[in-house]
Design a binder for these strands. Structure first.
Lengths: 173, 173
DNA sequence: CCTAATTACTTAACCTGTTAACTATTAGAA
DNA sequence: TTCTAATAGTTAACAGGTTAAGTAATTAGG
């Protein structure tokens, strides 16, 4: 599935000249490592989702509506960490499948609130146990302490880097 | 840019019934945390790449060819951790832009080796300094020790989870 | 030698990420 | 009040992730 699965002999690093010596650190790529980890984790959840023709993002939306209750599209977008254009497509898809429904807001006709349908709730109940089980499995195999540490480091990394996004934004304005 | 940027008040968790009490842990999603971290990191590299109309994946390919030398598509796919169908599109794009070139293999005509062109090498030299600088910046801001720890945890997580992929595969066969 | 399986790679179809532009509606200022 | 700016959401266009199917060349078995 993933490219590294049938990983064979990789090309050796070329002998580096003085010129490119400082580039060796390139070999470790943080985005790539994060991506690999994400894929490895998602692979554990995928079977349960694929069995019901759901993507992980669609599942995230259903889960969010189940747990937090009805939400507007923008709110869903924030909560699920999915950009609005993507969310727009996702809710259309889920709505077409009868898993969620849209309720217009008479106060502000730009807004519309999404809600799980009964059928969506049934699907949630069908998938949730396997999802919980998979999560517990990962926690056990990897270790609770390490998992917490990982979460902390990731949060901290995001905090560190987005803090100076703000700084940049301030500079710009 | 990212949905959480203009993060306002999020919907509070609904009061949980006895039934769904065990679902609270859902609120922390490992894939989502990994994605957020990845996006935060990539945002740091994007400006330099976007200035030259490169995506991070395209840059990864160029970097790989510069550092490891000419490679076949499958090898590139492994090294860059990009699936072959994606790689197929990427090399076509880079080739069309004259940044890499394709050399047929006379021994085995299914294979073709990709190589950086002079123009590709020039582009690499133009972008690399900013990329290195960004990486060093992240290392400093986040802390070298924590960064190493993060890499270790990610590698370990992948190892833990893919180890039992194999087990599953064995069971299946 | 000839057919069947494998291998390297491409194409296709679908979904999401990302940026920009666009519509409709509401809020604000002159 | 009317004209402008902001807001909620959608659409469009392009790139990559993912799975499946397809093509061409090579290897292996009979």
């Amino acid at each position: 599935m993933s490219p590294s699965e049938k990983s064979k002999k990789l090309a050796p690093l070329r002998p580096v000249t003085n010129d490119t010596e400082h580039l060796r650190q390139f070999d470790r790529s943080l985005p790539m490592s994060l991506l690999k980890a994400r894929e490895a984790v998602m692979k554990k959840f995928m079977p349960a989702l694929k069995a019901h023709e759901l993507t992980s993002q669609q599942w995230r939306v259903i889960r969010a509506l189940e747990q937090r209750g009805d939400m507007e599209v923008s709110e869903l977008s924030d909560v699920c960490y999915i950009l609005k254009p993507s969310m727009s497509r996702i809710v259309q898809n889920l709505q077409a499948r009868g898993l969620i429904e849209r309720r217009g807001n008479s106060e502000d006709r730009r807004r519309s609130t999404m809600a799980l349908t009964d059928s969506g709730r049934v699907l949630f109940e069908k998938i949730a146990p396997a999802s919980i089980e998979r999560y517990q499995y990962i926690t056990e195999k990897f270790g609770y302490g390490k998992l917490e540490l990982l979460y902390e480091l990731l949060d901290e990394l995001v905090a560190t880097l987005s803090k100076d996004d703000d700084k940049q934004d301030d500079d710009k304005s």
